[in-house]
Design a protein around this nucleic acid. Structure first.
Lengths: 210, 210
DNA sequence: GTCTATAGTAGGATAGAC
DNA sequence: GTCTATCCTACTATAGAC
């Protein structure tokens, strides 16, 4: 290979690494103060630069940084969800997917907002990409399996949607609640959370329409 | 009564009315763009003033406006919750309280964030006051009644807390979800939402600990 | 590729005429 | 009580030296 190629490759790798480091620093700031609460000046300082100007060698501007950050953590949330074994019984699988969401929220506090909100003032056009469709499909398959096996009382697609809807809402709400009341003994609560998710699933076992 | 008193009273009333109008305008702006997304200039314009300076006759600054807004909507949420009849069966009462939260969220979109988040960049010290303790007490009484009557499988105070925790999370999450996917046929969904809340309560009827 | 310097903008808040 | 005018600060982004 030519020196030019090798040098280019190394430089590109270094460039990518620096981008990652900037995103690492941005993560801390976003966690602490939110997307609109941190400045590029602060970010540059935390990433080891003397001035914000240097950041523009790596990103076109704040919007691009926020976009890249959202993409990164969307991917990471996907990792958590994918880690749930597919061979678990349907009900447990639903519970564990909720737990995975909660785990993500605990381990990446403050990044969830990136995945949900349109950071309008930063990027009027920007909306975080959806979860990989592979995962969305998995959720619906799960609901379909619960319907087919009779594990849950689901009659049609609307019912399946209701269960998934409720699951997302519950997991999201619990993550939100936990964020407000941070707990020193967090590990104790995991079993508690799992029990609540089990109650949620159990609620759909027999007629729940009224 | 003296003319001074009467005049003072009238003027004070007019002052209060203007304050209210400002808050009305602020509600629209907060709903559209969020607490940090609107400027006093915009607010003044929408409230019928030519310039932001006039606002300072009514509020000390933006922080005070946001605080007053939060107080107003906290009170309003209280109204929704109080409207739920106290003589309903326990389970239904829990369901209807969740529905009341959802109704509030639908009818006052965008104000919920005020009640939850610390609007840090606007008011570093500000955190919305809690719900009137009267209402918090009611929730716990409700959980206690569900335990005592055996309507739900609750063994101790932690279990009661778990039910309430789950209810809040579910209602909050559903409101959040609905906000993201606004629906033209919203009224159709109310029965759907109620069914989901019923499923949630039903999940706690028999052993839900695993 | 990092720096200094600075342009350009926006928003909160105040002074003072009327 | 409302207006015009202005100060101050903070922030994004760019230009250009090194």
């Amino acid at each position: 290979m030519s020196a030019g190629e090798a040098g280019g490759g190394r430089l590109a790798a270094r460039h990518a690494r620096t981008r990652d480091e900037i995103l690492d620093a941005a993560t801390e700031l976003v966690t602490d103060r939110g997307v609109e609460g941190f400045s590029l000046h602060e970010l540059a300082a935390r990433a080891g630069f003397g001035n914000a100007a240097s950041l523009y060698r790596y990103f076109a501007g704040k919007r691009e940084i926020v976009s890249a950050l959202a993409a990164r953590y969307l991917e990471r949330l996907g990792d958590y969800l994918r880690r749930v074994p597919e061979d678990l019984p349907v009900e447990e699988q639903i519970v564990e997917i909720c737990m995975a969401y909660l785990d993500y929220a605990r381990e990446h506090p403050g990044t969830r907002a990136l995945l949900l909100t349109t950071a309008s003032s930063i990027a009027p056009d920007f909306r975080a990409a959806a979860l990989p469709s592979e995962l969305v499909v998995r959720m619906f398959r799960l609901g379909e399996a619960a319907r087919a096996s009779g594990a849950l009382d689901l009659r049609d697609e609307d019912d399946i949607f209701a269960v998934l809807h409720a699951g997302w809402a519950l997991a999201h709400g619990m993550a939100e609640y936990d964020k407000m009341y941070e707990d020193p003994e967090r590990s104790v609560l995991r079993s508690r959370h799992r029990a609540i998710f089990r109650a949620y699933v159990a609620g759909f076992r027999s007629d729940w329409r009224g």
